[in-house]
């Protein structure tokens, strides 16, 4: 027994005090690394940066185009295309997007839909809903979205009978929500959702079509 006692003392790597220190150091180390990374991440995802554009981006066309270098689609900010035909200052845009975000929270959107892939799975993901081909043409899209949000239960959704309920969204809230959705579609999400086929936003006159058109985005898609 005395032999085991000496053994207990020699096994420093199996001792309580060693692992107590290890637990503290590993936890502290992880936290320090996390805090360091958090500072950088928060800087990068503050609105106005490259990954998360300023709210005034809703004044412009937003597209989702395949990027050869990164090997997935990325948001592309295009020419001026103000939402509801009215160009907003940065402050006005932020107020509108914020109103939209508050609406999505107050109406509990996240417990049917996913936003950036997080939420519930009873209704479509909203990350790129601004670019969804279901809205038809880019000219009618804004009004269609507003109409849908205000009276969703009367609209045709799908073949399986699942519908969105009427959440009493006012016109002001609906327009703000559309602004929030348009802004959200400009966030660089590392290629999520993958293989998305955006609505055709090219200008009718072929001469004016920029390189970043919907056709270009769809071209490399070969499943």
């Amino acid at each position: 027994m005395s032999q085991t006692q000496t053994q207990t003392q020699t096994l420093w790597w199996a001792s309580e005090s060693f692992w107590k220190k290890m637990a503290i150091w590993i936890t502290a180390g992880s936290v320090v690394v996390l805090i360091f990374l958090t500072f950088d991440t928060v800087k990068q995802i503050t609105a106005g940066g490259k990954r998360v554009p300023a709210y005034s981006v809703i004044n412009q066309r937003i597209d989702y185009v395949f990027d050869d270098k990164r090997n997935h689609q990325v948001p592309v900010i295009g020419p001026e295309e103000p939402l509801f035909g009215k160009k907003l200052s940065e402050e006005e845009a932020m107020a509108l997007v914020s109103k939209g975000k508050l609406t999505t929270q107050a109406k509990n959107c996240m417990n049917c839909h996913t936003l950036l892939g997080n939420g519930a799975y009873y209704a479509p993901d909203l990350t790129k809903s601004w670019l969804d081909p279901n809205w038809g043409t880019k000219e009618t899209r804004e009004q269609k979205m507003v109409d849908f949000l205000m009276n969703p239960e009367e609209m045709l959704h799908n073949s399986i009978g699942r519908r969105m309920t009427n959440l009493g969204i006012t016109e002001e809230e609906a327009r703000a929500t559309v602004a929030f959705l348009k802004w959200m579609s400009s966030i660089d999400t590392n290629g999520f959702p993958y293989n998305f086929k955006p609505i055709d936003q090219s200008d009718p006159a072929p001469a004016a079509a920029p390189a970043a058109s919907a056709d270009a985005a769809a071209a490399p898609v070969q499943q």
Binding site: K69, R70, N71, N190, G191, N195, P220, V221, Q222, Q223
Partner: peptide
């Protein structure tokens, strides 16, 4: 978006192919 990457290309991840 099946596309074989050349060895010079550096991407963070290459998504899984459907198959």
């Amino acid at each position: 978006m099946r596309r074989t990457l050349t060895s010079q290309e550096r991407v963070v991840i290459e998504p899984v192919h459907l198959a």
